[in-house]
């Protein structure tokens, strides 16, 4: 007993060091697993508060650009609307009572945007009090951004597509070949497309959109265009995608809620269990 106490006294700093280091490693390993929600995240009220103050100041300098983006978006939507109105006058009137949208959109603002690391996260200023939940899709007017991960009442963190653990279902716009979107951590304007079958006909400049298989994103949200690709034997080696979004200059985003998601997941689970 005397020996043990002596031992503990002699190595007490080393023991403390080891214990704390193990805790830190535990958090690190937890952060590297994609499916677990993390304890250490910037959605807390203190970190969120600091980032809100910072973005309030930054906002002032990006007003001009933000204005331009909004007017472009306005323009695009107005064009679409006039198309619909023309079609509508010819066709039948649709009873809007029975047409319910499958997706709900919530607007939020990015208060912290990382894009230089290997595993990037984005912090936004809406949380569970605004009806957000984990695994909702995040987009902006130009295209896809990421998936909601951790939430507090007022803030949420978003797993950016610039994260080595981000894997999204996408497809080619002109043919129905599906693939997976990943990121190799090098350039924040290019992401990689894998798992495309060899028989797919690719050419530089083809548009990539979301696949709609995942129940997170609706089908057809724009992602980017093919920049270059290489063959390796019988499969595509690596297809580089140039993103429509400039991931270094993001402002306002929309969070997509899939209303029928539970239903879809339940059905998929039942089918696989049988």
């Amino acid at each position: 007993m005397q020996q043990i106490i002596y031992f503990l006294r002699k190595y007490r700093y080393f023991l403390l060091f080891t214990i704390l280091e193990l805790i830190a490693l535990l958090f690190t390993i937890q952060s590297h697993s994609f499916h677990k929600s993390k304890f250490v995240n910037s959605a807390t009220s203190i970190t969120g508060g600091v980032y809100t103050q910072m973005s309030n100041i930054n906002d002032f300098f990006t007003l001009k650009q933000e204005n331009r983006l909004l007017s472009e978006e306005n323009n695009r939507l107005k064009n679409k609307l006039s198309q619909y109105l023309q079609e509508d006058s010819k066709s039948m009137v649709i009873d809007s009572f029975y047409v319910q949208s499958k997706y709900n959109y919530t607007a939020a603002k990015i208060i912290k945007n990382d894009f230089r690391k290997i595993n990037n996260f984005i912090t936004i200023n809406k949380g569970s009090s605004s009806g957000l939940k984990s695994d909702m899709g995040v987009v902006n007017t130009k295209g896809i951004i990421g998936i909601v991960k951790n939430l507090s009442d007022e803030y949420a963190t978003v797993l950016s597509i610039l994260n080595s653990y981000s894997k999204l279902n996408v497809k080619l716009k002109n043919s129905n070949y599906f693939g997976t979107l990943t990121w190799d951590g090098n350039d924040y304007n290019t992401v990689q497309l894998i798992d495309i079958p060899r028989q797919a006909n690719l050419s530089v400049g083809d548009t990539i959109i979301t696949g709609g298989r995942s129940a997170i994103f609706p089908e057809g949200i724009r992602v980017g265009v093919i920049q270059d690709f290489q063959f390796e034997g019988t499969k595509f080696n690596e297809i580089n995608i140039r993103l429509f979004n400039d991931m270094s200059a993001l402002g306002y985003v929309q969070i997509i809620e899939n209303i029928e998601r539970k239903q879809q997941q339940l059905l998929e689970e039942q089918t696989t269990n049988e």
Binding site: L20, A24, L25, F27, T28, S31, V40, N119, F121, T123
Partner: peptide, 14 residues
């Protein structure tokens, strides 16, 4: 906590 990085800064600073 601020940089969403798990425990990497804690481990290295310790």
């Amino acid at each position: 906590f601020f940089s969403n990085s798990g425990g990497i800064n804690a481990a290295s600073l310790l």
